[in-house]
């Protein structure tokens, strides 16, 4: 866009007035509340500066909740990446008919937004103790899936439910990257004597790598910040970090308000970092795909 022609000097002030509402809104409802939480993480109840709150994260229930949260986020991000990549690969390079492709994209848009409470209900209705599949497996196949160690309110159940929004999100963000893999690259590699696996190892995967890592980071953040699905699914049976924070905000269960700030701060740092990684890597992969 060309630079604006120089205007009369006094005009510049009124030009800035136009964006005041936006910045005021962002300040009051986004930046100040976040800053308050961040600062709270570093202050004592009496107002002094301290690092104790953060140290408190590394003990007892909070540490184990942090650990469960990390594990579930990494695990669902990993599985979501693989499964999403396979689905996206099938619709971009797998020779599926156009109609299937469009319906998968549309469905992914819906499913990636179908998180939270209703999703949990859908899984309870399907895989809960009286769920559709549980009953089917018991009556028709004679299998009690709960005897195999599976439990919807445990780690495995939560993983299964999270994948329901993780995979579609992966499909949505990785499809453009896969479309960017040009047929000519494959043909050039082939004419130079490369086999299919050699092409994937030497060209396709390295080209996709930034997009894949970036998508992983985004999926991680997506899972880490999710609360409603886990709460509706497990109640408080499985304690992950956001659930602890939720309980803390509601009733100060930790009996130390500033520990709440520290948890919130940790969450910002983790999701913020992974989003940063995502944005950096996306810039890099876009450079390649010119």
């Amino acid at each position: 866009m060309p630079p604006l022609p120089a205007k009369r000097p006094q005009a510049s002030f009124s030009v800035w007035l136009g964006v005041v509402p936006f910045f005021a809104f962002a300040m009051v409802f986004l930046i100040l509340p976040t800053l308050h939480v961040v600062l709270g993480a570093f202050t004592r109840p009496d107002g002094g500066v301290t690092g104790d709150n953060l140290a408190g994260l590394l003990a007892g229930t909070i540490l184990s909740a942090l650990w469960v949260s990390l594990r579930i986020s990494l695990w669902t991000a990993f599985l979501g990446c693989i499964a999403g990549l396979l689905v996206a690969g099938a619709i971009t390079h797998g020779g599926l008919p156009r109609g299937i492709r469009d319906s998968i994209t549309t469905f992914s848009g819906v499913a990636s937004n179908f998180a939270g409470v209703p999703l949990a209900f859908a899984f309870i209705a399907t895989l809960g103790r009286l769920g559709f599949i549980t009953v089917l497996a018991r009556d028709w196949l004679g299998i009690n899936i709960y005897a195999t160690g599976f439990n919807l309110t445990s780690f495995s159940g939560l993983t299964l439910a999270y994948l329901y929004f993780q995979i579609p999100l992966m499909v949505l963000i990785i499809t453009p990257a896969l479309e960017g893999l040009r047929t000519e690259w494959r043909e050039a590699a082939e004419s130079l004597g490369a086999s299919g696996p050699q092409y994937w190892r030497m060209v396709a995967l390295p080209v996709l790598w930034p997009s894949l890592l970036g998508a992983f980071a985004l999926l991680f953040a997506n899972a880490f910040g999710a609360v409603a699905t886990a709460m509706a699914l497990t109640g408080s049976a499985l304690s992950i970090l956001p659930i602890i924070l939720f309980a803390q905000i509601r009733g100060d269960v930790l009996q130390d308000p500033h520990l709440g700030y520290a948890i919130a701060f940790a969450m910002i740092v983790l999701t913020g970092l992974s989003n940063l990684i995502y944005i950096r890597l996306r810039v890099r992969s876009e450079r390649w795909q010119k």
Partner: peptide, 18 residues
């Protein structure tokens, strides 16, 4: 194609970007 020992140059260059 990979067994034919044929070199090919494409309109869009098709260099491996990585």
């Amino acid at each position: 194609a990979s067994q034919r020992h044929i070199g090919m140059v494409f309109q869009s260059y098709a260099l491996f970007p990585n």
